[in-house]
Amino acid sequence: MANQFAKFQHIGIVGGGAWGTALAAAAASAGREVSLWAREEEVAASIAADRENKRFLPGVPLDPAISASTDKAALAAADLVLLAAPAQHLRATARDFAEHLSPVAPVVVCAKGIELESGALMSEAVRGALGADRPLAILSGPTFAAEVARGQPSAIALAAEAPALGEAIASALGSATFRPYLSNDVAGAQIGGAAKNVMAIAAGIAIGRGLGENARAAIMTRGFAEMVRLARAKGAKLETLAGLSGLGDLVLTCTSLQSRNFSLGQALGEGQPLCDILAVRDSIAEGVASAPALVALGEKLDVDLPIAGAVTDVLHHGADIGDTITALMARPFRSEF
């Protein structure tokens, strides 16, 4: 039987930030026609005139196959749509595009987070905006936007409930430098992507406080245990968390200042107030909003998430970092598994 999704040629990208631009570059490198929608006039103009997203991805030349616009109708002809808007705005953005997209075009969720207001995974938020019948996939893994856009080797998880859809998207986006690995575990791919941002903030705080590499390793390992517990409660496959969208993304995000979340945590650990850190940034550290959403979801599912809770207390409840670390280390001794 022929794959009904076999010939994606025109890729629509919703979101002109660093990640949306990088995905546009990857799709163009794979030989696809690409239409990118940006909210900011300056971004669309910069890509059109200079072949560069000077605001969010400066210094990276972009393929002429990428067209950019602030007109939502520019994506009407796309046969595959990648949603790369910020996580907390994804539902509203998808709703805004509902009347402009082809009714049969599958969507790929490329945002990482948990909706703060509802506790929904990104797939649940998008289905709420676009309808339950829209074919949907998740793209998540250890990928810094600038490296993807420059064509440096990257591997990423692509989760779709329908195997034929996953295969078709992989064929459309995959190239010699951008390698999707297929899965049908939509929930697992999203839990890893959301939780690792919170753990990266915790790891950054530890490094900023000068607590050393042992502390970073402990946070990453115990943070991974929290990811696994939450994923299990959401019905995900445990092997998914050991793959690119879980452990892979956790390792990358907790070990590099290229990570918005790790660098934010490090600045916090060095004593900078959160409001000052955010005031000078033009990009979003998704872990700031995902931390309380993660904790709320854990409470709903009766899952213990002490590191996520500690990060939430520091970010949103004014908790002292030193006292919070002391409280974490004073928890009762228990079995590791």
Rank of each mutant, 00 (worst) to 15 (best):
A2R: 09
Q4D: 14
F5G: 05
A6S: 14
A6V: 06
K7N: 15
F8S: 05
G16F: 08
L23M: 15
A26E: 09
A26Y: 03
S29M: 12
S35P: 02
W37R: 10
A38S: 15
A38R: 01
E42L: 14
E42H: 14
A49I: 11
D50F: 13
R55V: 13
F56E: 03
P64S: 13
I66M: 13
A68M: 06
A68C: 09
A77G: 14
A78E: 07
A85W: 03
P86H: 07
L90F: 06
R91H: 13
T93V: 15
R95H: 13
P103V: 11
A105K: 01
C110Y: 04
A111I: 06
G113Y: 00
I114S: 07
E115W: 04
E117A: 15
E117Y: 00
S118N: 07
L121Y: 04
E124G: 11
A129D: 12
G131L: 07
A137H: 00
I138G: 03
T143S: 15
I156Q: 13
A157R: 02
E161G: 15
P163K: 08
I169D: 14
G174Y: 09
S175I: 08
F178P: 04
S183G: 09
Q190G: 08
Q190I: 02
I191M: 12
G192Q: 04
R209L: 12
L211P: 09
G212F: 09
N214G: 13
A215F: 06
A218C: 12
I219F: 09
I219N: 06
G223E: 09
V228M: 13
L230S: 07
K234C: 14
G235V: 03
G235K: 02
K237I: 00
L244D: 02
L244T: 01
V251A: 10
V251P: 02
T253G: 04
S256N: 07
S256I: 00
L257N: 09
Q258N: 13
R260N: 07
F262V: 03
G265Y: 02
L268W: 05
Q272T: 11
D276Q: 14
I277H: 10
L278Q: 14
S283W: 01
S283K: 09
V288Q: 11
A293Y: 10
L297E: 14
G298W: 01
E299F: 06
K300A: 15
V303M: 05
L305C: 11
L305H: 07
A308S: 14
V311T: 08
D313P: 00
V314E: 01
L315D: 10
L315G: 02
G318P: 01
G322W: 00
I325E: 11
I325N: 05
A327G: 06
F337R: 05
F337D: 08
